[in-house]
Amino acid sequence: MDEDAPEKVGYRRSAGSARGEARRRELLERVTDEVGANGLVDFSLRRAARAAGTTHKVLLYYFDGPEDLLTQAVLQLRERRIDRSLAAADLADSTLAGRVRAMWPVLVGDESWVLDQAIGLAMYDSARYAELARTASVRYLPALISICPPDWPDERKHQVSEFILAVLRGFLIEWRTSGDGPGIESGFAALSRALDHEEART
């Protein structure tokens, strides 16, 4: 049978097939690229199908409708952002403050506006898109924990990472709503002092 035959709805039906899963990932990558470039407004299966070079019926074979496909694409964008952030942190100096500071240009990079739209969508229509907001902390928190000094106890890593995440979210909102670069830089100076103080008491 043709792997693209849209006879059933839901990609989970093809999860047992390596070929089917590879096809699903290929389609998702193409849709994710399109969402990253054009945002979430007016997203539809037909728009996604054009980007993926297929039909909306084929997408319905691999995904559980437009909300599922959009959620999967946003999660994919978020994973890309986290991976790039950690790569930037790895190239920074050895201090926690330096690693956090190095992540910032990635967090406000080209696709950041789309991820901001996703959080807004989750707040506006939580019944349909709550997962977009829930998964943000679930994914970003472990990334921040991973850049904390390795000799810190787990509880301390978690507490400091929660603090960093909350502050960065505030900076992101400020960046998106006011574009106050100097104000954010002042905030980063204060955040760096706090993190340097925390690290110095090790």
Rank of each mutant, 00 (worst) to 15 (best):
D93W: 05
G98C: 09
S112K: 04
L91K: 15
T71S: 14
W113F: 06
L77A: 07
S137F: 06
V74H: 08
R80E: 11
A97L: 12
A97V: 13
Y140T: 11
Y129S: 13
W113G: 05
E131W: 04
Y124V: 12
R99W: 09
R134S: 13
A89P: 08
Q76N: 06
D83G: 01
D116K: 02
P105W: 09
R81Q: 10
V138T: 13
A122G: 14
P105I: 09
S85F: 05
L77C: 04
D90M: 06
Y124R: 15
A97I: 09
R99F: 02
A136E: 09
L121R: 15
A88K: 02
V114N: 02
L115P: 05
L69I: 02
E131F: 02
A122H: 12
A73D: 08
M123G: 06
W113E: 07
R99V: 04
L70S: 01
E111A: 12
L96C: 09
I119H: 06
A127I: 14
R139T: 04
R84C: 00
E79A: 15
I82W: 03
L69H: 03
A73H: 04
E79S: 13
D110K: 12
Q117K: 07
R99E: 07
L141H: 11
L70E: 07
S112F: 13
R80V: 00
A92E: 07
Q72W: 01
L91H: 14
M123A: 15
Q72F: 02
L121M: 14
R99H: 08
A118T: 08
E79P: 00
D93P: 05
Y129R: 11
Q117I: 10
S112Y: 10
R139K: 14
R139Y: 01
S137E: 13
R78P: 00
A133S: 10
L141M: 10
D93F: 05
S94D: 11
A133D: 04
S126K: 01
R81I: 00
V100Q: 03
L70C: 01
R81W: 00
Q72I: 00
A92W: 10
S94Q: 07
G120R: 15
M103W: 03
T71A: 08
L86Q: 12
A118E: 06
Y140I: 06
Q117C: 11
Y124A: 15
E131Y: 03
A102P: 08
Q76A: 14
T95W: 05
A89S: 14
G109V: 04
A87F: 05
A122N: 09
V100W: 05
Y124G: 06
R99L: 07
L121N: 09
A127R: 14
L115S: 04
V106Q: 04
D110G: 01
S85H: 02
R101D: 14
E111M: 02
S112M: 10
A122T: 10
S126F: 13
D83T: 13
D83E: 14
Q117N: 08
D93Q: 08
A102K: 07
Y129A: 13
T135C: 02
E111I: 04
R99C: 02
P105V: 05
L141Y: 05
S112P: 01
A73K: 06
R101W: 03
M123Q: 13
G109R: 03
